[in-house]
């Protein structure tokens, strides 16, 4: 069972959306609105986090998420230090907890971490006094991405409650999908997962209640046929086919995947006319999505990127403002 003090601790850190309430997400939206106003100014900078140091620590390649966090921190006047695993002492064999403790001792106020191993940010949060923001860990969670997806849906369609959101593709390896399932469910959307049976994990297929009676995931629908899944859809989130993770023979062939699960114009026409097409990037155009759809009138991929900076500004503001 969750206690109040635990919720407070997790607001100091942002690890996943699994314990965020509708009210908390609405508060993040309101703060993000204010951040978007700053981004619309000629001089996109406020002194809010002046004197704070934000460290981005990335153990996995990333351009957009790292740059997005860096810009967010700089727009708020913070100093930013970027560390990647090739430059870190991790290459010399230092344990990640020691690396983080060193960064803390050096005076970092917030650590933004991405790691290929699920659970690393959570472990860090337990060992550090300073704030930890998860920028993606293994197949577990990517909360800032899910929040910017939610924010973009609300911005474009006005609300999230009651919408049918189809997440299509490699659900198995997707931290974006898992965080979105939590966030969308908290906001009252209907989540439909679609993908080849081998890429839909068992824990989502039939969520078994844990010992405490808590469900590992909120209720959702699984529809393996994309044409059927898209009917009446308000939002289609296309996931990147993680080719680097397909060595285990989970897919018969790339051609078959394209044939059955690629989002193209004909398939998209089965969804509502107002349906949004989203993608967390980077896109494999011609594989999970056709170029016409990726850059078509229903695509909000660029809005997602722009909103990402504003959402991350809001998160940095909120974790830093909560101290003291």
């Amino acid at each position: 069972m969750r206690t109040n003090s635990l919720i407070k601790m997790e607001r100091h850190h942002i690890i996943d959306l699994d314990d965020f309430s509708q009210e908390e997400i609405a508060l993040i939206f309101a703060t993000t609105d204010a951040m978007k106003e700053i981004l619309s100014r000629e001089i996109r900078r406020v002194p809010t986090l002046r004197g704070k140091t934000i460290v981005t620590l990335f153990y996995e390649p990333s351009t957009r998420t790292r740059v997005s966090f860096e810009l967010a921190a700089k727009n708020l006047g913070a100093d930013v230090v970027n560390v990647t695993s090739s430059t870190a002492s991790v290459a010399k064999g230092e344990s990640i907890i020691d690396t983080m403790r060193t960064l803390e001792a050096l005076g970092a106020d917030v650590i933004v971490i991405r790691h290929f191993q699920s659970g690393v940010p959570c472990l860090m949060a337990q060992h550090l006094q300073i704030s930890v923001i998860n920028a993606g860990d293994g197949c577990h969670a990517h909360p800032s991405q899910a929040l910017l997806d939610l924010y973009t849906i609300r911005e474009k369609l006005g609300h999230i409650e009651g919408l049918k959101v189809v997440i299509v593709g490699d659900i198995l390896h997707s931290r974006v999908a898992r965080s979105n399932i939590w966030g969308l469910s908290a906001m009252g959307a209907q989540v439909v997962l679609c993908g080849p049976p081998t890429l839909i994990p068992q824990e989502l297929r039939r969520p078994q209640p844990l010992k405490g009676g808590e469900c590992p995931f909120p209720p959702l629908t699984i529809q393996e046929n994309l044409d059927r899944a898209l009917e009446e859809a308000d939002v289609v989130m296309v996931l990147r086919l993680q080719k680097e993770r397909q060595e285990g023979g989970l897919l018969p062939s790339l051609r078959e995947y394209i044939q059955l699960y690629q989002l193209n114009s004909a398939r998209l026409s089965r969804a509502h006319l107002h349906a949004l097409v989203m993608h967390p990037g980077p896109m494999n155009e011609g594989i999970e999505i056709t170029p016409e759809v990726a850059h078509g009138p229903q695509s909000v991929v660029e809005d997602q990127v722009t909103n990402g900076v504003a959402v991350r500004m809001a998160l940095l503001y909120m974790v830093t403002g909560g101290k003291g």
Partner: peptide, 23 residues
């Protein structure tokens, strides 16, 4: 004008404080 982002007492801000519209 909302001055939240310009305050000198960020650390003591109420987490539930809602930033309002600057226009």
């Amino acid at each position: 004008l909302d001055i939240s982002f310009y305050r000198d007492d960020l650390a003591s801000l109420d987490l539930r404080h809602i930033v309002q519209r600057t226009d």
